[in-house]
């Protein structure tokens, strides 16, 4: 009797969706607990301490956060990061989508084009930075030589505070174009041909098809691209570290660069942790907002 009951219970558990929900999540949860939760909790704690990375952290409450909101350099750095994100994410996503759309048609050589557009992504930032430093060179660079030949204005790209950020933004969009294009391409595979065929019969042109079919049906993919690009943009480090080192005159200094400097050059792990907590809060809020907007659009 008892035995029969337990079998029933077990069977019913096996039929419960929540049980399977957790089961499928189990490996991810274990990994999360070990490799994320512990380090992040420690870092959260460090943000409340004065900690040089070596000697015992001293608890200082919210002091780090208080000084951060008064720290002009940090606030300026936040602003730079916002500017960088606002430009690279939407523009980058839009251009990638166009490329994906072009290369999803029956165009000849599309595989070759795709591979070529993907190449900058494979190349390490060390090499990329070297190329662009030369391209951007005010006196000898290829871009200014071309502009000069055309009789156009030759911007002092990396050498002026005004042009340095646009330079970094252009390079970043260029490098990530192929990456988002691939995600969009994968997304485009899920759109049934029959929709386009139906639209053809209705006499819709390419633009109408693009805006009425492709964009709405790519909603989930687009959300993914926007969210992940935004998270990446807020955490930009490599290209700044290698291309401009935050200069000239801190015009391209972004948050993670400042975090790196504080954590590993200034012996200020605590302060760096506080910065990354603020950065985390900003990214998290922006991500939630994007999900919310996406849901509103759905309904």
């Amino acid at each position: 009797m008892k035995n029969k009951n337990s079998i029933e219970v077990r069977q019913s558990i096996l039929q419960k969706e929540w049980f399977w929900g957790y089961t499928f999540l189990l490996p991810a949860i274990i990994g999360f607990l070990i490799f994320t939760l512990i380090p992040v909790s420690m870092s959260l704690y460090y943000s409340l301490t004065e900690y040089d990375g070596i000697t015992k952290p001293i608890f200082v409450g919210l002091d780090n956060y208080k000084s951060l909101f008064k720290d002009k350099e940090f606030l300026m750095t936040l602003k730079n990061t916002f500017i960088f994100t606002i430009w690279t994410v939407p523009v980058g996503a839009f251009l990638s989508l166009i490329c994906a759309q072009l290369l999803n048609s029956k165009i000849r050589g599309k595989k070759l084009y795709r591979s070529i557009i993907f190449i900058p992504n494979i190349v390490s930032y060390v090499a990329v930075a070297m190329v662009w430093q030369w391209l951007y060179n005010e006196d000898y660079g290829l871009i200014n030589t071309l502009l000069g030949n055309l009789g156009l204005y030759q911007p002092p790209w990396l050498t002026s505070a005004k042009w340095a950020m646009p330079s970094v933004i252009i390079m970043t969009i260029w490098k990530n174009l192929g990456y988002n294009m691939i995600i969009f391409l994968a997304g485009l595979q899920g759109i049934p041909n029959s929709y386009y065929e139906a639209a053809d019969i209705d006499g819709a042109n390419s633009f109408q098809k693009f805006f009425r079919i492709t964009i709405p049906l790519l909603r989930n993919t687009t959300l993914f691209v926007l969210v992940t690009s935004m998270i990446g943009a807020f955490q930009t480090f490599d290209q700044i570290y290698l291309l401009t080192a935050g200069g000239p005159n801190r015009a391209t200094q972004v948050v993670v660069y400042l975090i790196y400097m504080n954590a590993f050059q200034y012996f200020k792990q605590g302060y760096a942790s506080a910065m990354s907590c603020i950065l985390f809060a900003i990214i998290f809020a922006a991500t939630l907002l994007q999900f919310r907007l996406n849901r509103d659009n759905n309904s």
């Binding site: 070297m130 030369w134 060179n137 990396l158 000239p248």
Partner: peptide
């Protein structure tokens, strides 16, 4: 050259 131009010369 000024420091910004030097910085922009980068690796070389």
């Amino acid at each position: 050259p000024d420091p910004a131009s030097i910085q922009a010369m980068g690796k070389g």
